[in-house]
Structure formats: C-alpha cells, structure tokens
C-alpha cells in the first residue's frame, strides 16, 4: 500500500494504491493515471546550477531536458556538480549529453553575458 497526494489539480486528492495496483481516493480519472505512473516509474526534472569559471562568485542555472527516474536524482546531481562552463552562456547550450544514460541532456537555462 502506498499513499501520496495527487499533484495534477488543486483538489489534491489523497491517493492510495494497493499491492495489486488498485487506485482509490481519486476524485477523477486523471488521478488514477498519475498514481500508476508514480508507482511504476516516478520521474522528475532536475533544475540546479553549475559554476561559471571566468566570473567571480557566479553560477548559471541548468536543467535536465526531460524527467529522470526519481531514484537517480542524487546520482545525477553528483555528475552535474562536476560540470562548469565559461561565460557568455546562452539558454539551450548543451553542457552534457545523455547524463548517466537517462536520455536527458544538461542544458543552460540562463543567459550570462
């Protein structure tokens, strides 16, 4: 049995999924779909920062281009924390491709001149 809050709409239903994958507590069908994804393969997009080498006290924001498995968040963070770039940076610049074989690239999300 797993319990969590549906995040699809503000009603925020408390969903319960039993060991056979039956969903209860959902007010509408969207909650059921969400619950099943959450149980089978929960994923999250990561947004964080990396160092800008040629600027003092500056980091630039980056993100994963798609969601990565929730269980890998800290592993992915470890790799991202080894990355750095030089300014100028442009939104969409790829810093690393296919991080840890997740299919996600790490891209810049901020222009720094």
């Amino acid at each position: 049995m797993k319990e969590f809050t549906c995040i699809i709409c503000p009603r925020g239903c408390s969903l319960k999924v039993d060991d056979n994958g039956n969903v209860t507590g959902n007010f509408c069908p969207r909650g059921k779909e969400y619950a099943i994804n959450e149980i089978t393969n929960p994923k999250r997009t990561i947004t964080t920062t990396i160092r800008v080498k040629n600027r003092k006290d500056t980091v630039v924001s980056v993100k994963t281009t798609c969601a990565v498995p929730k269980g890998m968040i800290f592993e992915v963070m470890k790799v991202i924390n080894t990355l750095s770039v030089n300014a100028p940076t442009r939104i969409g610049d790829v810093v690393l491709e296919n991080i840890l074989d997740t299919g996600a690239n790490i891209v810049i999300t901020k222009n720094i001149d």
Partner: peptide, 19 residues
C-alpha cells in the same frame, strides 16, 4: 527562480524562471 513550472498558461510549455 531557477526551478521549472513557469509559462504553462503563457507559452503552453514548462519553463524555468530565467527562460
């Protein structure tokens, strides 16, 4: 605000604050 979730109404896509 470097996290994402911005722009769903305006651009129909999920953007980070700086984007």
């Amino acid at each position: 605000c470097i996290h994402n979730g911005f722009g769903l109404t305006e651009f129909k896509e999920e953007l980070t604050g700086p984007e």
